[in-house]
């Protein structure tokens, strides 16, 4: 282990794949840092509402189907799991398995988006619009937040399929899988955001 650290510490070649991978990961984390902030504003817009006008949220919740959303949450968690299994597969050198796992990630992500659209449709029938005088102000706090997250999922789904096709073309290997890892960071972050949103919007 000590020897490893040493070789790592002495690498000053900025062009080495290792250095580039490290750069990419750091950049992704910085990007996620800024995502944390932007989500926190949208979350705040909901949280203020939850704290200051709780009766409106309670009222709106009667229209929301917890079991439906729980299934959807499960779908997204599963896609995150599939993602990380895909990474494990390529680390072990199994390209076919990686392609299958990442493909599953994309399909599950897509399922999440479609189910969310179904949910929106249901809510619309219940009379919860983006803004309406009668149904209270739940919609304007709910839709932007979930839709912004949903947009991230859509981007992730597209990215997953890109990674999958690159995998089919055998562009990754056990020594070069940084592209998958970076996508993984993004995808898990989207998952983490949903974990928080699910609890905050539907349960607390």
């Amino acid at each position: 282990m000590a020897q490893l650290v040493e070789t790592h510490g002495h690498t000053h070649d900025h062009e080495s794949p290792q250095a580039k991978a490290e750069n990419l990961k750091f950049a992704m984390w910085l990007y996620l840092a800024s995502e944390v902030i932007i989500f926190s504003i949208l979350i705040a817009a909901f949280a203020i509402f939850r704290v200051r006008q709780p009766e409106m949220v309670d009222e709106a919740r009667e229209a929301l189907s917890i079991s439906f959303v729980s299934v959807n949450t499960f779908v997204l968690l599963a896609s995150s799991w599939a993602m990380v299994m895909g990474l494990l597969a390529i680390q072990k050198g199994n390209n076919e398995s990686m392609v299958r796992w990442i493909g599953l990630t994309g399909v599950l992500g897509l399922t999440f988006v479609l189910l969310q659209l179904v949910e929106y449709q249901e809510l619309r029938h219940e009379g919860i619009a983006l803004y309406s005088e009668t149904a209270g102000r739940f919609g304007q706090r709910f839709y932007p937040l979930t839709a912004f997250h949903g947009a991230h999922v859509i981007v992730g789904v597209i990215w997953a399929f890109i990674v999958m096709f690159k995998g089919i073309k055998r562009q990754y290997s056990p020594t070069n899988y940084i592209g998958i890892e970076i996508f993984g960071l993004y995808w898990h972050f989207v998952d983490v955001v949903w974990i928080i949103l699910f609890t905050m919007i539907y349960l607390i």
Binding site: S34, I41, L42, Q140, P144
Partner: peptide, 25 residues
């Protein structure tokens, strides 16, 4: 920039929604 600019992005998103989405933030 990494930590502060997203605040503006969040606020602008709400502002745009208020202007074209009919919300009342």
């Amino acid at each position: 920039i990494v930590l502060a600019t997203p605040f503006l992005a969040g606020a602008l998103t709400l502002l745009i929604l208020d202007r074209i989405g009919g919300t009342k933030f």
